[in-house]
């Protein structure tokens, strides 16, 4: 059995009174694209910064490719790429200069050739000073520097913020092709459609704790259903408060719509004898699934 790309055990990082992350347990397998989702402030960036040893853990431990995140941090970082959520490369440098500077730390063979190739892919002007670049272009530099040394693990934190759809698509293509070559991706985002598009498994973080780790498909197929019922007359009062009916029930005229997490036969029993004109049962979106866990 191969060593997990990331193994997190009871990892806690406290900020005094403020919430950090608490007893996080997670395993990311080698070669997978793993989603890490949660709203802003849930602890995604804190987890990543602890993994990269920018912050020290309060308790617990984590290994990346079998190496300890504190003791073997430099070794880990030689095999890891990182795209921070906010792109703030050295403003006094030109775009190409920044990338060459980054490559110099890894001793990338044929670095300049690789830089040119990736700058072409992302349409970056090499001579432009970073202080004059838009946030989208700075993001592109962040992306390029993370790929230069062909990392075994790529940690990305909100990578699509600031990127236009064309560049997002090129970035995703690059991610997929590198993943096919064996690169593991730890993809942290609150843009669920991105996670849905790329990841096989996902961890949901809420208020500093992991509340669920699931395969994307399993999440979708979980008993959650989006149900829309149209009655011939008004919506019956007896359906209010039905067990398994999630918050956010919308009733408009004769129709009602809700996410249902309960037993389907109970729902059918509750609907039996009601004068139903139409009914649809659909897979909920990932957003709706996420809100279900988050509520």
């Amino acid at each position: 059995m191969s060593t997990p790309a990331i193994q997190i055990s009871d990892l806690t990082r406290s900020y005094g009174r403020d919430r950090g992350i608490e007893k996080i347990n997670l395993q990311v397998e080698e070669g997978e694209i793993f989603g890490f989702i949660g709203p802003n402030g849930a602890g995604k960036s804190t987890t990543i910064r602890v993994l990269l040893n920018l912050l020290f853990p309060t308790s617990g431990s984590a290994q990346i490719m079998g190496l300890d995140i504190v003791k073997d941090s430099k070794k880990i970082r030689s095999r890891t790429g990182y795209i921070p959520s906010e792109a703030n490369p050295y403003p006094d440098m030109a775009a190409r200069e920044f990338l060459s500077y980054s490559a110099s730390f890894y001793g990338v063979p044929q670095a300049e050739k690789k830089i040119t190739e990736l700058m072409d892919v992302f349409d970056v002007e090499p001579g432009r000073k970073i202080s004059n670049l838009s946030s989208g272009n700075r993001k592109k530099l962040s992306i390029i520097q993370s790929f230069l040394h062909s990392p075994g693990l790529l940690i990305v934190d909100e990578p699509t913020t600031g990127l236009d759809p064309l560049m997002q698509s090129r970035f995703f293509d690059l991610l997929r092709s590198e993943n096919l070559r064996g690169m593991t991706v730890f993809f942290s985002s609150h843009t669920l459609s991105d996670v849905q598009m790329l990841c096989r498994r996902v961890a949901i973080i809420k208020e500093g704790s992991i509340i669920n780790v699931e395969a994307i498909e399993a999440l979708r197929k979980k008993q959650l259903k989006r149900i829309r019922i149209e009655f011939r007359d008004r919506v019956p009062d007896s359906l209010a408060g039905l067990q398994g009916m999630e918050k956010g029930v919308t009733v408009s005229g004769k129709a009602m719509e809700f996410i249902y997490a309960g037993d389907m036969s109970s729902l059918i029993a509750a609907l039996s004898g009601k004068d139903i004109a139409d009914m649809t049962v659909e897979e909920p979106s990932l957003e709706e699934i996420f809100m279900h866990y988050y509520n």
Partner: peptide, 14 residues
């Protein structure tokens, strides 16, 4: 304060 540590300290340097 320039937030460049997020790059520098993610590169392989102690």
């Amino acid at each position: 304060y320039g937030r460049t540590a997020e790059y520098l300290l993610s590169w392989p340097v102690t």
